[in-house]
Design a binder for these strands. Structure first.
Length: 561
RNA sequence: UGUCCCGUGGUGUAAUUGGCAACACGUCUGACUCUGGAUCAGAAGAGUCCAGGUUCGACCCCUGGCGGGACAACCA
């Protein structure tokens, strides 16, 4: 009987490839990956998966992972993005040490390699216009037309290519093309453009160049120059792989040949992931910016209160494979709850207050009650919370006419105030509209937490704040940005923005226990029974602004549905 | 009428390479609880897109379908 092995976790397909490569000594025992963002936008959770994958693989197999900016299109890229990307990768917890590279570092080498290809009759200068090239390329099912310049003498291409570099020709007037196969069923093999003339200031090379390499030409060669062993990218580049390999062949590269592998990008429900759509949300003012806490960007998640560890765990749990997938937002939420449950200090805060008066509690008396910081971490110790005659509790913790499964406060019923006393509701005050303005209770002094009478059982425990001591703070309640699982999946003439959730942000004034007053931006808390919250950078000292990261799981709310 | 990739519970990923499907999220019970949280115990839910074939035996190999996706920027 064959024994199933349950203690070694199974490997994903990339790990299997790597293990095999290592066993067969295909890469000289090396594993070297790279994360290659184009600095033309902000990183999102999908990139986080790629970052965790590339750095994670390198780490697991004792290899290296480079950070390489794919900056071959100066019209779209800038240093602002470079810096934001570096911050995000670092924040996620990865370290590229001194291996911060740029495709633009290789412009000179790439140029020399291109010259080599021209000499080998594998590239030529083409003088067709952009439209002509596009038109001549054919369609996936019909072959393209051969460029009239395709068989021009090597010397002529060499000369023209040099003069392209020297700026003798106007933008767009000429390109360097690989000479492959205009009839290939793979469109990428129909004499793809390698260089275009483009007078644009590059964020690193300035005006040194007026010709810039295309992705397909630059990427594989950059991999080669960096000694990359496994060049991991997303599925849409699968069709590019023959070209990736063709360039390597044409350059007669045998040793240290990088190989490209593709995996399925991450999709998350209730959000969109394309740079274009995210940009549209920012520019259309639907969110406050790239780091709006509702955005699936890394900077947005950071501001929302997600921890790097939670995102790493998430990236791990979503797995790696080649089939299209849509991950449930609930998994991401599970990951952050799991982390914060263990690590976030507890605090009491009332978000929708109703006044509660303890009629038999002495006027003017204040007790400082001891409260556990984190039941999951006894070593975190305790804080004190002021208690007095007039409190606030959550409006939905009281019902005048409750259903039988309601464990909270209602007339004649008892509940415990967390860390304080058991109270009993005596009567309520209402305004002329029947709206409850105050709840009157009595307390049992013997039932204070820790006292002998405190062992009495009651069904519910409520959080509360003392009216005189409460800190009024701005609280931003975030919810999912879209109200349908797949906002991309729009009918004919629809738009993904039609599905924006109008209630994705609600700003309220919360009443918090005073202990949070001096907490600073980035600090995370659990508001007991409510959710996890993180202090926003908009805060000023003494006046924290809280962002709701995620609610607590709420089985009562679920029951009500 | 093109080429390539992919089809396993609601979702995602496994099944160490041919020995009748596991784990996670979600869902539902119950226990416990000074958070209706957490934790603990348990349950339901797929017979692996379909049809043939090979085999003692197929999620796995072969053939043919079907379905989904990618590819026609001087973007990456």
């Amino acid at each position: 009987m064959k024994e199933k092995n349950h203690n070694t976790p199974s490997l994903n397909f990339l790990e299997q490839i790597i293990v095999k490569d290592l066993e067969e000594n295909r890469t000289g025992g090396r594993v070297h990956t790279r994360f290659p963002p184009e600095p033309n936008g902000y990183l999102h959770i999908g990139h986080a998966k790629s970052i965790c994958l590339n750095f994670g693989l390198a780490d697991k197999y004792k290899g290296l992972c480079n950070l390489r900016f794919d900056d071959t299109n100066p019209t779209k890229e800038n240093v602002g993005y470079v810096n934001a990307i570096k911050e995000d990768v670092r924040w996620l917890g990865f370290n590229w040490e001194d291996r911060e590279y740029y495709a633009s570092d290789y412009f000179e080498k790439l140029y020399e390699m291109a010259v080599f290809l021209i000499k080998k009759e594998k590239a030529y200068v083409c003088e067709m216009s952009g439209e002509e090239i596009a038109a001549g390329r054919g369609t996936p099912s019909t072959p393209g037309r051969i460029s009239p310049w395709r068989d021009r003498p090597v010397e002529e291409s060499l000369d023209l290519f040099e003069r392209m570099r020297n700026g003798e020709f106007p933008d767009g007037s000429r390109v360097l093309r690989a000479k492959i196969d205009m009839a290939s069923p793979n469109m990428h093999m129909r004499d793809p453009v390698m260089y275009r003339i483009m007078r644009a200031n590059h964020h690193r090379t300035g005006d040194a160049w007026c010709i810039y390499p295309m992705y397909d030409w630059a990427h594989g060669q950059s991999d080669y120059l960096e000694n990359i062993t496994h060049s991991i990218c997303t599925l849409e580049f699968e069709v590019h792989r023959p070209l990736y390999n063709w360039f390597l062949d044409a350059l007669e590269i045998q040793e240290n040949r990088p190989r490209q592998f593709e995996f399925a990008r991450l999709n998350l429900n209730y959000t969109v992931m394309s740079k274009r759509k995210l940009l549209e949300l920012v520019e259309g003012g639907h969110v406050a910016g790239w780091d709006d806490p509702r955005m699936p960007t890394i900077s947005g998640l950071r501001r929302r209160g997600y921890t790097p560890a939670s995102i790493r765990v998430f990236s791990d749990r979503v797995g790696v494979a080649k089939r299209e997938n849509v991950i449930d937002m609930a998994l991401l939420e599970h990951c952050i709850r799991e982390d914060l449950n263990k690590n976030a200090p507890r605090v009491m805060g009332v978000l929708d207050p109703v006044k509660l008066i303890i009629d038999n509690y002495p006027d003017g008396q204040v007790e400082e009650l001891e409260a556990i910081r984190n039941p999951e971490r006894p070593e975190a110790g305790s804080r004190t919370v002021p208690f007095s005659k007039v409190l606030y509790i959550e409006r939905n913790d009281f019902m005048e006419d409750p259903p039988k499964k309601f464990f909270r406060l209602s007339p004649g019923k008892e509940v415990r105030l967390k860390y304080a006393y058991i109270i009993k509701c005596e009567h309520v005050e209402k305004d002329e509209n029947g709206h409850i303005t105050a709840i009157h209770c009595t307390y049992d002094p013997e039932t204070r937490s820790g006292l002998s009478g405190s062992t009495r059982k009651v069904k519910g425990t409520l959080h509360w704040v003392s009216a005189d001591h409460a800190l009024e703070t701005e609280v931003r309640l975030y919810d999912r940005l879209f109200n349908v699982p797949e906002p991309d999946d729009v009918p004919e003439d629809g738009n993904f923005k039609d599905h924006l959730n109008p209630e994705s942000l609600e700003v309220i004034t919360g009443l918090l226990e005073p202990s949070v007053k001096d907490a600073g931006p980035g600090e995370r808390f659990q508001f007991e029974r409510t959710g996890y919250f993180c202090i926003d950078p908009d805060s000023i000292p003494g006046k924290p602004v809280f962002n709701r990261t995620v609610t607590l799981r709420d089985s009562w709310a679920k029951m009500q549905k």
